[in-house]
C-alpha cells in the first residue's frame, strides 16, 4: 500500500533547471569570440608543419585561448546533448546515456588539455 503522496514524491523538479539554462547561455556567449578565435587558428594552420603548429601553441595567449575554447565548447556540448538525450531516451538507457555524455565531454577535454599543455610547455 502506497499513499497517493508517496507515489509522486521524488518525481518533481530536480531544482537545477535554471542553472542548466543559465550555463547554456553563459557558455554560448563565451563561444562567440572563441569560435572566431578557433576559425582564425584553424585557417592559419592550413597545410602547416608540426613544427610551425607547435611554435604557435607555445605562445601563452594561443594555449590559453585553445584551453578556454575547448572548455566552453565542451561544457556547452554536454548541456546540449543532455537535453537531446532527455528528449529521446527513456528509462534506464537514459541514465546510461547521460553518464556516457558526461564522460565523453570530460575525456575530450582532458585529452585536448593534455595535448595543448604538453606542446605549450615543450615537453
Amino acid at each position: 500500500m502506497r499513499s497517493e503522496l508517496g507515489k509522486v514524491r521524488g518525481l518533481g523538479s530536480a531544482k537545477s533547471g535554471t542553472e542548466h539554462f543559465w550555463m547554456q547561455r553563459v557558455t554560448a556567449i563565451a563561444n562567440v569570440p572563441l569560435v572566431i578565435f578557433l576559425v582564425w587558428f584553424i585557417i592559419s594552420h592550413v597545410g602547416s608543419t608540426r613544427a610551425a603548429f607547435i611554435t604557435s601553441i607555445k605562445h601563452p595567449l594561443i594555449a590559453v585561448g585553445l584551453l578556454l575554447a575547448l572548455a566552453s565548447f565542451l561544457y556547452h556540448m554536454r548541456l546540449g546533448l543532455q537535453v537531446v538525450i532527455e528528449d529521446y531516451v527513456h528509462g534506464s538507457a537514459k541514465f546510461a546515456a547521460l553518464l556516457i555524455n558526461t564522460f565523453f565531454a570530460v575525456i575530450l577535454f582532458a585529452t585536448a588539455a593534455y595535448a595543448i599543455l604538453k606542446m605549450s610547455f615543450g615537453l
Binding site: 608540426r50 585553445l66 556540448m77 595535448a115 595543448i116
Partner: peptide
C-alpha cells in the same frame, strides 16, 4: 539541434588534430 549534434561529433576531429600534433610529425 542537428547542427549541435554534428558539432559534437566535430569536436572529436578537433581533439584528434590537437592530439596528433602533440604526438609525432608522422601522425600530425
Amino acid at each position: 539541434r542537428i547542427t549541435g549534434v554534428g558539432l559534437a561529433v566535430g569536436m572529436i576531429g578537433l581533439v584528434w588534430w590537437l592530439t596528433a600534433a602533440s604526438i609525432s610529425d608522422g601522425y600530425f
